[in-house]
Design a protein around this nucleic acid. Structure first.
Lengths: 241, 241
DNA sequence: AGCGAAGCTTGAGGTAAATCAAGTTGTCCG
DNA sequence: CGGACAACTTGATTTACCTCAAGCTTCGCT
């Protein structure tokens, strides 16, 4: 998947690894060609920011590879991560003036970027794209609402269990083509302990202690700081349920 | 606004109080007539449930009057309210099989209900409706994500301040037509203390203590349990910021 | 290899909110 | 109008998580 050349500006849609899963999936060859003309590939290094909260919303984008975070800050600096974006996910705020959150790459990422105005014009002329975007947005709203139960009503243990299962399941969807995949028990965390804390609404110390606890209980195994193996999936699912 | 007859099944769209704000706003007279044929009005008493979490998603609806809550539960019964729906808001999960949350009326409410299958067919044939629904869904996603900052990173005082301001601003949008309105400082809470706790991710006791604190500080004034007057809006805005 | 620094872990102590347990106040209804 | 019940408030105590403060790993770099 990393083999394709992200700098190739000519007809990159044809070879795009998320071509059949992103919002462009239902477009025909002619439409794809038009979309190809208004978009461009962009590579982001870890830590690089694509959109700033409060800034004019100039871009929208599809994630092609990598993982990005959406986040917002309180005036005093407290940060809350609003979600993660995986390959085929859509980024940005069409039909809105300002970006309501920041978007920053967690890992080395490739995105397919459009000027918001270009994209909106295209969408209004091509109902199928707008329909796909609607379906994706409704799905994202469901996912976001489920996260509210975690932030409002779960304890630290339940929160980390839920996140580990979520990352596992999202990782596979991002890695394999849509036949024959299954959710892996081994994966790499795409973010630091502090970022995990900002996702879960906890402090870095509490997150660290929970990792230690899961390790001691044999629920997970770790090689280095970011390589996780789930050993007792049932235990995690019980907590997350 | 309560003067219109909710049981009148003939052409209720024409006289609908949310006609210009709901997703039907951009439809022409012919389209409205078609939509009118597939929808029907339904009145809900406080506490009555329109959709159950996990059930087949048979309905979608527009809120005409009243306030409803969307909520989800953990397996052990802990509840988290995912959001409130005010007049002109859209309810339900188009293009999905199961309802990801429950919808229950908080106050006496009127909704305009469609069979999901009817609605989806109509939407696919009428791009303007789908576009409106997309805009509304994107807005709802933004609002939901902002709430995550509250659940993940705010203390009890900040949470209640934010909710009071939110209810005040949503109440006016629900009450007045779109010219000349301003946000009121006096309003009625449409929910119980326990429901406020379930919105804010707190316990009923903590909510009660915060109300008492705001009253003692002269930030708000209360007549009975549900009538609130904001006396120091600055103070609340400072906390919510 | 070995240094340095950022990232992470661990411990001790403090605190906001939860929990448990009475009281009190509104509200419904005959 | 009064009585009963649910809804709410208040107080005392506990606890999960936060804060502050060291240490310890991991990893990039020369």
């Amino acid at each position: 998947m990393q083999a394709e050349d992200p700098t190739n500006e000519i007809n990159f849609c044809q070879a795009c690894s998320v071509r059949n899963r992103a919002i462009c999936a239902d477009l025909d060859d002619h439409e794809i060609e038009l979309l190809n003309k208004i978009g461009r590939r962009r590579r982001l290094a870890p830590g690089e920011t694509l959109l700033w909260e409060g800034d004019e919303a100039v871009f929208v984008a599809n994630v092609v590879s990598g993982v990005l975070k959406l986040s917002t800050q309180k005036s005093d600096g407290r940060e809350q991560i609003l979600g993660l974006a995986y390959p085929s996910d859509f980024l940005g705020r069409p039909f809105g003036e300002v970006s309501p959150y920041s978007v920053e790459a967690l890992s080395e990422s490739t995105v397919c970027v459009f000027q918001r105005s270009d994209f909106e014009r295209f969408a209004e002329e091509h109902g199928r794209l707008e329909h796909k975007l609607l379906e994706r947005t409704l799905g994202e709203l469901d996912r976001t609402r489920r996260w509210m139960l975690l932030l409002g009503r779960m304890n630290a243990e339940e929160r980390l269990a839920t996140l580990l299962l979520e990352i596992a399941s999202r990782t596979v969807l991002a890695t394999c083509e849509n036949t024959g995949w299954k959710v892996p028990d081994e994966f790499e965390l795409p973010m630091s302990r502090q970022q995990i804390a900002d996702i879960l609404g906890l402090t870095i110390e509490t997150v660290s202690r929970q990792f230690t606890k899961f390790r001691e209980e044999g629920v997970i195994e770790m090689r280095g700081r970011r390589d996780v193996t789930i050993r007792k999936r049932d235990a995690l699912e019980m907590l997350a349920a």
